[in-house]
């Protein structure tokens, strides 16, 4: 595997360029995963999501994931990009592109990479709900972190 492409960015993710980056004559399969900002979660309406990172550790963990995936599957190329800052509905928050000789390896590696990224890479999202409240998403913590709306009804 060539050096993995690992990036945090405040700019929109160019997923076409990222896909081109992993294409290779050695690969028979290219897999692209995009995480995008969803409008409804359990019936609540999202206006925007804001992403924050601990950048040096996030980059180091993303690189570690790419290297671990390359040990488990014969990756030809891999690229992982996470967006930071304020994102509108439908925008891309994360993109993972892998190329492999055969498709099964690509699906498995891509699935493992996004699942593991969500568990270990120090990036956090804050919901900006349509009712004006904001709430950090911290899985496993029970109480909600809702701040009052800026303006009353």
């Amino acid at each position: 595997m060539a050096d993995p492409h690992i990036e945090l960015t405040h700019q929109p993710i160019d997923y076409q360029a990222l896909t081109e980056r992993v294409r290779s004559p050695q690969a028979g399969a290219v897999l692209l995963f995009l995480g995008t900002v969803r409008e409804f979660t359990s019936g609540r309406q999202t206006l925007r999501l804001e992403y924050e990172a601990y950048p040096p550790m996030a980059l180091s963990k993303m690189r570690e994931l790419a290297e671990q995936a390359a040990q488990r599957w014969p990756l030809t190329e891999v690229a992982i990009v996470h967006r930071l800052g304020l994102l509108d509905l439908g925008e891309i928050s994360v993109a993972i592109a892998v190329s492999t000789p055969h498709r099964d390896q690509g699906f498995e590696a891509g699935r493992w990479l996004i699942d593991t990224l969500k568990e270990v890479v120090p990036v956090w999202k804050q919901e900006n709900w349509s009712d004006g409240t904001q709430e950090w998403v911290h899985p496993g913590t029970s109480d909600t972190a809702t701040s009052p709306p800026a303006l009353g009804p």
Binding site: Y51, A53, Y54, M57, A58, K118, V121, V123, W136
Partner: peptide, 10 residues
């Protein structure tokens, strides 16, 4: 040293 709550990227 850093301290933070469970992560939620992706």
């Amino acid at each position: 040293i850093a301290c933070f709550p469970p992560v939620s990227g992706g």
